[in-house]
């Protein structure tokens, strides 16, 4: 009996390490495939090179790094205010019964496949931008708007959780001192939940940088340094998504190398967000 218990515990321990194991495998294989090319052409030439012409062996991802951040920045401009508004709305302004309806709606927002958002961007936003602002329509602006919407569930749920986790005495104390409800929210609750709110924004940022299919559909995919929100662009993720289907040799390795850069950015953001939300717990 005791023997069986011991064996089961060992099996469960092994199981529990599966996610670490997978993370390790992912890291190992992405680096194994991508690193040799980065070392071959030089870190600087790869990261800061502005030309991506696989047929000539030119692999510079700088425009894609810039585009990734540009699109993400645009998404945050829309996502942060809307997300915070929804989080405050859900935690402070609405009666719980309405929240019971609204919260599933936010969850649904997260469940809609990204290709659906991309398709909507393509058929609605792109023509709209083309007609009203000119340019190709397939643009950073369209990408930012769609992404800003896609990262809302991340920002809303985590911000709302951290607002809800605050001790009720904070609110009671502020109200008792004569602060209005809004002053309590803005000057007491939000600052107290700051680390959670910041963590939610960072995770949203990670989600935005990592999005692929929707962006392939609406960014236009031109490899060049973006100069305006109306330019079409290619991000790190879309570069992989578009060319992986037919790449081979150095070209394929260069796509894995693009993955390495993406992986570094995502891991930095993840670690930051995790350490911030840990702080909230203790």
């Amino acid at each position: 009996m005791a023997m069986k218990e011991k064996i089961i515990e060992k099996i469960l321990l092994l199981t529990a390490f599966s996610s670490i194991f997978i993370l390790g495998l992912i890291t190992f294989f992405i680096f194994k495939e991508g690193l040799p090319l980065i070392l071959k052409i030089g870190i600087k030439a790869f990261l800061l090179g502005e030309k991506w012409i696989p047929s000539k062996g030119l692999f510079g991802v700088f425009p894609m790094i810039v585009s990734s951040f540009w699109v993400t920045f645009g998404a945050l401009l829309l996502g942060i205010p809307l997300g915070l508004a929804c989080a405050i709305f859900l935690s402070e302004l609405i009666p719980p019964s309405v929240g019971l309806l609204l919260r599933p709606a936010i969850q649904l927002l997260a469940a809609i496949p990204s290709v659906i958002y991309g398709f909507w961007g393509l058929i609605v936003l792109v023509p709209l931008i083309q007609n009203h602002f000119g340019g190709p329509g397939l643009s950073i602006l369209a990408g930012s708007l769609v992404l800003g919407f896609m990262i809302l569930p991340t920002i809303i749920t985590i911000s709302e959780d951290s607002l809800k986790a605050l001790p009720p005495t904070y609110k009671a104390g502020a109200l008792a001192l004569g602060a209005t409800h809004w002053q309590t929210i803005w000057r007491v609750l939000i600052p107290a939940a700051r680390s959670g709110v910041v963590a939610s924004v960072i995770l949203g940022m990670g989600r935005a940088i990592g999005e692929t299919m929707a962006m392939i559909m609406i960014l236009g995919n031109a490899v060049k340094m973006p100069t305006s929100f109306l330019d079409s662009a290619r991000t790190l993720t879309t570069n992989i998504g578009i060319e992986m289907g037919y790449a081979s040799g150095d070209h394929r390795q260069a796509l894995f190398a693009t993955g390495v850069v993406l992986f570094f950015i995502i891991m930095a953001l993840n670690t930051l967000a995790i350490s911030l939300s840990r702080r909230r717990v203790h």
Partner: peptide, 16 residues
Amino acid sequence: GTDCLAGVPSIIFGLF
């Protein structure tokens, strides 16, 4: 590890 895995973009999973 689990939190990190949750943040890995799907295209990276695809490459892997």
